[in-house]
Nucleic acid binder design. Structure first.
Lengths: 329, 329
DNA sequence: TTGTAAGCGTTATCAC
DNA sequence: GTGATAACGCTTACAA
């Protein structure tokens, strides 16, 4: 590998001068500038970020921890995070937890050892160990999707959005409304969206049959299963189903269609998240749009903002959402 | 930041001893081992990969260049690449080209400056500048999806797969078959798949009407548009459409359904890529599965294999594919 | 079994 | 304007 020293030698200058040239710091005469430029071009020299950051204490790398990369939400978030970060000369180093909470912590350590300048965490489960690990961090961290005390966060208004969607069913005079959620361990998606649903039902004066409240995972298959469970729970069928993710909703739709139900004639169904395909399936899925792109952008901007500041101010941003009414309701 | 020196001091040892302990290299007595262990635990010390790799000349980081992260194919590939790499103690640093060929080169430089141990390139357009830049690389590079002379590649059998799919239409006695491709700049997706289509048509003895050969981008909207163009091109309508990506196919389906065509009754349609949703849209999309997960895995294994070897052997792997017949044909 | 010291490729300080 | 030189945090001969 060619180093700054060799460039210096070839250009008849010292490495300090080359460094000054490289970083536009301090004087370097027009003449030597030309010489250095030529040598660098002809050798194809690229300075080692490695060595640079050992010295400067900043790596221009942001760690991004995601639960899974192959979901619409994650990939959209990472994509928009990357767009902003790249503009500012940062790069992303990825850490995938594969939905394993322990890995969240391991990854936090890993990123620390890489001396990242900041961390963005697409959070799923929040546990005390995680929080403690975060508190030990010396670099700023921004969490996306889950509220973490003492940490800057970009949040969805999970509660209110779920409530709104349920109310929408109410307005359409649905009475028999089923719910498919996920583990309440996941506070945002599991707990808050369920709470929104329950509170809305309460305000609507509707009865919530526990048999019509199911729990699924984050995959299509389990949405299908949950719908099956609900449909087979009793004689009567719900006339509406609210699913806390689009994936679950699509799995559920699959079951319903397969069993001859008309959507939304027999059963109305709504999802959450406005996945790219929700618009293109038939019937097009009514869902909640949480503006992921914007959330990613905000997270990126927030982390950049926090880097370098000695006193990190804690910010909490709640993203706007909107209900997208399509054909499934 | 706490350093190895401070650990050494606290543990009453020298930094070399601590280093030996850390890396299990050379002797460390049981006693000092215990002491060091305790200090590390109590301080939460994490060695700086930064400094380490400056010395050892390996970063345990692989650069991954993707055209866009927010597509099914990319995110699945990156996900499986990451799974394998993480197992082996590697991490991924992402570089997104946003489909901009110039950025491919800029990113190559960027990754070089980060001293990555290897690079995986999800290639789209291959141009001479790119190839030259790759040749200048000192680290191994594995390309995914496009053939690049002199480089290890993981390929799809784009040509044969497209041919097979077209033949499938032929077997079903379709005669009026339309084609929606992408720019032939993209050799794999644009050129080879089109060639496969054309050759199959030729072998089937079918006429290819240029009016029924359209070009789209990589988004749903342009699939919709391309279908519109074809449908409005002349009085007669095709009875089958082959699209070179699922996204395009879904956009096209959208147009057809919207205009009252029955799929596959009036028009049969097939996509390519087996996107996660292709199974869940209605009618379920017939498509080609290129086993992305496996491809990502192979790419990761290949790059690990090449790291450290002085003589990098050039391998070319063609992934198996299969046609998934569903309801749209 | 342990410690000293040099070196990895930069930048920053300071003297010239 | 420029160039020694130390320092960043680690590993690795080599010496003890």
């Amino acid at each position: 590998m060619i180093t700054i020293k060799e460039i210096a030698k070839l250009a008849n200058a010292s490495s300090s001068t080359v460094s000054r040239y490289l970083n536009d710091s301090g004087y370097v005469s027009e003449e030597t500038r030309k010489r250095i430029e030529k040598v660098i071009k002809s050798t194809g020299y690229v300075p080692s970020e490695q060595a640079k950051s050992l010295r400067t204490k900043q790596t221009k790398v942001i760690g991004v921890i995601v639960p899974r990369l192959s979901t619409d939400t994650s990939s959209r978030l990472v994509n928009s995070i990357n767009d902003i970060l790249a503009e500012q000369g940062y790069q992303i180093i990825l850490a995938n937890t594969n939905l394993n909470p322990e890995k969240e912590i391991a990854n936090l350590r890993l990123l620390r050892s890489r001396q990242v300048d900041g961390i963005i965490l697409l959070a799923t489960n929040i546990n005390p160990t995680l929080i403690k690990e975060i508190e030990n961090l010396t670099v700023p961290l921004v969490a996306l999707g889950q509220e973490i005390p003492g940490i800057s966060v970009i949040l969805n208004d999970d509660y209110q959005a779920a409530k709104d969607m349920t109310k929408l069913f109410g307005e359409q005079s649905h009475q028999d409304i089923a719910f498919i959620g996920v583990s309440e361990q996941d506070r945002a998606v599991g707990h808050l969206r369920k709470k929104g649903f329950l509170d809305a039902m309460n305000e609507l004066g509707l009865y919530v049959d526990p048999k019509w409240v199911a729990e699924a995972g984050f995959d299509l298959q389990s949405g299908y299963q949950a719908m099956k469970t609900i449909a087979e729970a009793k004689r009567q069928k719900p006339t509406a189903v609210f699913a806390v993710t689009d994936t679950i909703a699509i799995g559920a739709m699959h079951y319903l269609l397969e069993h001859g139900y008309d959507i939304p004639g027999d059963v109305a169904i709504a999802g959450t998240g406005n996945s790219r395909v929700s618009e293109y399936i038939r019937p097009a899925l009514t869902t909640i749009d949480f503006s992921n792109e914007l959330a990613g952008k905000q997270a990126a901007e927030l982390i950049i903002d926090q880097i370098g500041k000695k006193e990190l101010s804690i910010k909490k941003v709640v993203m706007p959402y909107s209900i997208i009414e399509r054909d499934s309701v």
